[in-house]
Structures are given as structure tokens and as C-alpha cells.
């Protein structure tokens, strides 16, 4: 029996930039222009659904990483593994071909990534906001330049002032 990594290497050929065994999933990085082609090939292997569509904002490198975590239901051998199909896209011009036409299960997840990161999925059948209102979605809340301020653990005022106002 050949290992899953070899199988994927064979199927995708030289589309792969990097393949590594991460903790809990096999990460396959493909170039942006080969994403759709690789997705079709991976689907032919038997990976029939998308578990999660994730984007990560690398603000220093000016890049987004988009990962499709895919696995299988119908093929019991493959269902033990999770494959991460990743690609890096430009942070200033975030366009990526949509895989919702290949895996229907990615449809809502891509919509979510679209509203939180502002990544545009070209060819998505129904690219609308899902969870947020337009005002909040315009801020692209999951990008790293949207900062949520957390409270300090210390009370700045002294004892008497705290007892008088009791507010933080």
C-alpha cells in the first residue's frame, strides 16, 4: 500500500510547491493558478467534501494563506486523513478561484471567508455576506490590521477612587 502522501504527489505531479505532514493533517501547497486543477484531481482521488475553508493573514509577508481542509466520507480509507489544500495569494489584490463549484460543501464557508477577509472568490455561485452586516463586513474583521483591544489586568485608579466609583 502506498502512503497518502505518495498518492497525492503522483496525482498532482509538479503542481505541488510543498507537501508536509502537519499536526493532524497533510498540508499541500499549490500555486494559485493551479488551485482549481489540483482540486479537480484531488476530488477524483475520492476527497468528496470540504471540512473547513480557512484564510490566515500574514501581514508582514503581505500574503493571505487560504486552506481548504478536505476529506472523504464515502472512501473509508481516506476518511482517516485530512488534506489541507493551501495556496498563497496577494494581500492587496485578494482574488482566488472559487472551489464551490467543485465541492458544494465549500459554498457557505467561502462566503464566510469572503466577508471576514475580503477575499473574492471568482466564480462563486452566490457570493453574498453570510454572518455580518455590510457595515461590519467592510472592516474585514479577521484581518490582522483590525485590532481588538483587550482590557488590562490592573485597575489604574487607587483604592479610594475605586471604592468611590466602582467602575471599570
Amino acid at each position: 500500500m502506498i502512503s497518502l502522501q505518495d498518492m497525492i504527489k503522483e496525482a498532482l505531479g509538479n503542481n505541488i510547491i510543498k507537501i508536509e505532514d502537519n499536526k493532524g493533517y497533510i498540508d499541500v501547497v499549490v500555486p494559485l493558478e493551479k488551485l482549481k486543477e489540483s482540486a479537480i484531481k484531488v476530488k477524483q482521488l475520492g476527497f468528496d467534501h470540504v471540512k473547513s475553508v480557512t484564510a490566515v493573514d500574514y501581514i508582514q509577508k503581505k500574503q493571505f494563506m487560504v486552506t481548504y481542509h478536505i476529506s472523504s466520507y464515502l472512501n473509508e480509507e481516506l476518511s482517516r486523513h485530512v488534506l489541507g489544500l493551501s495556496t498563497f495569494i496577494d494581500r492587496d489584490n485578494p482574488h482566488i478561484p472559487s472551489l464551490a463549484t467543485i465541492w458544494t460543501s465549500a459554498e457557505f464557508q467561502e462566503r464566510e471567508v469572503y466577508e471576514f477577509f475580503g477575499i473574492i472568490f471568482d466564480g462563486h455561485p452566490d457570493l453574498r455576506l453570510l454572518l455580518l452586516t455590510p457595515v461590519v463586513a467592510a472592516l474585514k474583521p479577521l484581518r490582522k490590521d483590525f485590532v481588538v483591544k483587550e482590557d488590562s489586568i490592573n485597575i489604574e485608579v487607587d483604592y479610594a477612587a475605586y471604592n468611590a466609583t466602582k467602575w471599570w
Binding site: 502537519n22 499536526k23 493533517y25 498540508d27 471540512k51 473547513s52 486552506t67 481542509h69 485530512v82 489541507g84
Partner: peptide, 17 residues
């Protein structure tokens, strides 16, 4: 590092990356 975990919750599989 990056890690991925899945668990069968009551309503079905829950996934964390």
C-alpha cells in the same frame, strides 16, 4: 506550528485549525 483536530460532538464533527 499549525495543527488540526476533529472531534465528534453531539451534533456532528467539529473541526479546529
Amino acid at each position: 506550528g499549525k495543527s488540526f483536530a476533529r472531534v465528534e460532538a453531539g451534533r456532528g464533527e467539529i473541526v479546529y485549525y
